[in-house]
Design a protein around this nucleic acid. Structure first.
Length: 419
DNA sequence: TCTGGGGTCCTAGGACCC
DNA sequence: TCTGGGGTCCTAGGACCC
């Protein structure tokens, strides 16, 4: 059977989510900001047309948005995750096998349908997502994942939002800039340009030996995929998570150890909660603190790790670890900008290996934490917290333009007024 | 240009072993 | 010409993705 892959990709996903709840902003430029409201991470087509690019700092776009009657939003990941799920549910109805690749993308196995008119099949899928969730979608179709990725770029430019690259691969790849290939980033892009390779077609035609030598097997696989030989299979089941990171920049820099400790304890609590939600436990915990590499002046990065005698998902244990890790790496006199917690060596909580040195008290603690999780889930926000995370949290990130959690919290349901 | 937060995989090189 | 060779495990760093 012919191998056919579809890639369904939501257009300007975060911006489209905000717009789905604010129909009054139809046709207006709209941007979503990164944490701390620092820079643009998503922009609607209208915003892009005004020259607003991703990565642009807020202050530079604020005026443009205002004068055009648009809006900007702090990122609201709860909302995006919820709408993402709804999009995926719709897509699932159209295929037997798919891979949820990211919050706004899914690879679809279309091989079984290759005798259908695939572009029109994709169009009806696209319509359904727009109708039922209110999110615009593009679909690329090709013989491999990498070709489907190239196809979706063309789909975004076409009016119908669907593009089938099959039968015209070389013509399309001849126009695709080499760094726009999925799997070729900035570094390899530069390397290839230095070699005189400017397009995807040029890359495809490079000697395989050269690609293997300079770009590892990853680059080689990308090249094979462009030639139409599938190397990347559809990952229907999510492989088990290996690591969990919670890190954020502070709302302002700080030199104070007490503030950094609060932040680390807060991140550790968040990490613990996510870990429990995914029914995982961690053997190792690390913390890091750093100054801003983008500011002049002395720099410092500290990172320390600790291992637990038994894998754990305990907020109490994690907070305790933060205190000792921080005292082992904190250096006074530096303007710290960011900190984070990394949980690694993860395992499934059901196969936790018993250890003689863990007390029954610690096991009882797990029950307490489950109760806390339950309360926090039920009341929608962190109603029960540990004292270590602080009360005023002066280091907390800025999110001044947050949209309501309209689809996940009853109190924040949008109101509709009939007139 | 100015640079957020959360991930994964691959490779080289060192330590260690027989 | 040099030379011990082969294996495993771990870590750091680099590359990529959204």
């Amino acid at each position: 059977m012919e191998n056919v892959i579809g890639l369904a990709d939501c257009n300007s996903f975060y911006a489209s989510c905000e717009r789905a709840l604010r129909p009054d902003l139809a046709g207006k430029p709209l941007v979503v900001l990164s944490n701390n409201d620092t820079m643009v991470v998503a922009a609607s087509p209208e915003a892009k047309a005004l020259g607003i690019g991703l990565g642009e700092p807020l202050f530079r776009v604020q005026r443009i948005i205002k004068t055009h009657g648009g809006a900007f939003f702090s990122s609201n990941y709860t909302l995006y995750a919820d709408l993402s799920q709804r999009v995926m549910e719709v897509l699932k109805r159209y295929v037997m096998r798919m891979e949820v690749y990211s919050i706004d993308e899914a690879f679809l196995c279309l091989s079984e349908f290759s005798d259908l008119d695939l572009p029109s099949y994709a169009s009806s899928m696209r319509e359904a997502v727009r109708e039922e969730v209110g999110i615009p979608l593009s679909v690329g179709i090709g013989g491999t994942k990498t070709l489907a990725k190239a196809a979706v770029k063309a789909a975004k430019k076409s009016s119908g939002g669907v593009f089938d690259i099959r039968g015209q691969e070389e013509a399309v790849l001849a126009k695709l800039p080499v760094e726009d290939i999925w799997g070729i980033g900035r570094q390899y892009g530069r390397l290839l340009r230095r070699q005189g390779v400017d397009t995807a077609l040029g890359f495809m035609r490079l000697p395989e030996r050269w690609v293997l030598k300079h770009m590892t097997v990853d680059g080689f696989r990308t090249q094979q995929e462009l030639k139409g030989f599938p190397c990347l299979s559809l990952q229907e089941a999510r492989p088990p998570r290996k690591e969990l990171v919670v890190s954020r920049g502070f709302g302002r820099v700080t030199e104070r150890a007490e503030e950094i400790e609060e932040a680390l304890c807060e991140y550790a609590s968040l990490a613990a909660r996510r870990l429990r939600r995914e029914e995982l436990v961690a053997r190792e915990i690390s913390a890091f603190i750093m100054t801003s590499p983008f500011r002049p002046g002395p720099q410092y990065v500290g990172i320390k790790s600790a291992r637990f005698p038994e894998r754990s998902a305990s907020t109490v244990a994690f907070i305790r670890a933060m205190r000792s890790l921080l005292s082992g790496m904190y250096r006074p006199g530096y303007p710290y900008r960011k900190a984070g917690v990394i949980l690694s060596d993860l395992g499934d909580c059901s196969v936790i290996q018993g250890n003689l040195f863990v007390s029954p008290a610690e096991r009882r603690e797990q029950q307490l934490l489950r109760a806390v999780d339950h309360l926090n889930d039920k009341y929608g926000t962190e109603v029960v917290r540990f004292g270590a995370v602080g009360l005023t949290q002066p280091w907390r990130m800025r999110r001044e333009a947050l949209s309501p959690h309209a689809t996940t919290r009853w109190e924040e349901l949008p109101q509709v007024n009939a007139s």
